[in-house]
Amino acid sequence: MSLDPSLDQALRAFITADQGGFEDLALRLFAWQRQHNPDYRALCADAPAPTRWQEIPPVPVGLFRDLPLTSFPPEQARVLFRTSGTTVGKRGECRALDTELYDLGARRHALACLGPLPAAGVALVPYEADSSLGHMCQDFVPGMPTFLTPERGLDLAGAWQALAQAREPLFLPTTAFALDALLDEGPAAPLPLPAGSLVMVTGGGKGREMRRSEAELVEQTEARLPGARVVGEYGMTELSSQLWSERPGLPYRPPPWLGVQALDPATGAPLPPGSEGLLAFVDLANRWTVLAIETQDLGVVDPAGRVQLRGRLSGAPLRGCSLAAAEALDRR
């Protein structure tokens, strides 16, 4: 199964060399996916034909828990990424035939935002076969060990030891939660890392309580690991592209093949630029599933197309004979 060869080639050319126009490619990919993806076709059945990329109907990320959403027969999938599933029991699944565009795009945009990546690393991200984050990090620095495993959890002592042994610039990809835990341990004195080292912080606490705010996390990382630059990465299993920030908390920069807009949470309608809303993406690297995704993250897209994250849409109150008694116990 492959794309229309000319579209396939055009997507690759755009992602690797900026050749072509984003909107034209987005509309062509949408038309192809609607034809080959029965779930997406059903979801778009009542939607008018888009004439701009912003009009391409986005799929709520939650539907990846319930539908295959593949633009090929799902049983032919050779790649399976799963969401972490930390907030609800059922995990979302994203299937693909390959990761070619994913890998090309991830490397190119990381290079554009960060410069050359270190050749060595110490990871605090999961490497399970179904982790897209682990896949990306291992692609960036092949052979990099991880100190976060399902069997042992976070091996903080091992991570500190590996950091102490660094003799060349290091890449340290970590979730915010793992970094928070890392800073709770290790030597009290600063541990200088070789110049050019990068700490990549991604994700929040995944619903777990963190001891430090984002700003404290960055400040203390810079103080404990001098010589390393701390950058932010925003990505999700349902997207094939990532956004990078020069520093967690600052705006995130999408690649040219990723359109971003903010939607009205209530209606799903696009909001004027500069408004805070639900972030929705049109990702040309999402070749095998659906290119348009509606997230549950809030943000503002600035005139330059950069994204300021504003956290997750607060969950609606549980309905039903409810949980108010918890309030009676709260902070007694």
């Binding site: 029965p38 779930d39 059903a42 979801l43 059945a45 009542d46 799929v59 709520p60 939650g62 539907l63 319930d66 539908l67 009205d264 949470p265 209530a266 209606t267 799903g268 639900l278 509606e294 549950q296 849409l313 607060s314 969950g315 609606a316 109150p317």
Partner: peptide, 21 residues
Amino acid sequence: GPLDPALGPLWRERLGLARAR
């Protein structure tokens, strides 16, 4: 009245699921 904005994503998700299944 209007829909609670926080319920919008879940509303669209359920609607989408019904359209597909």
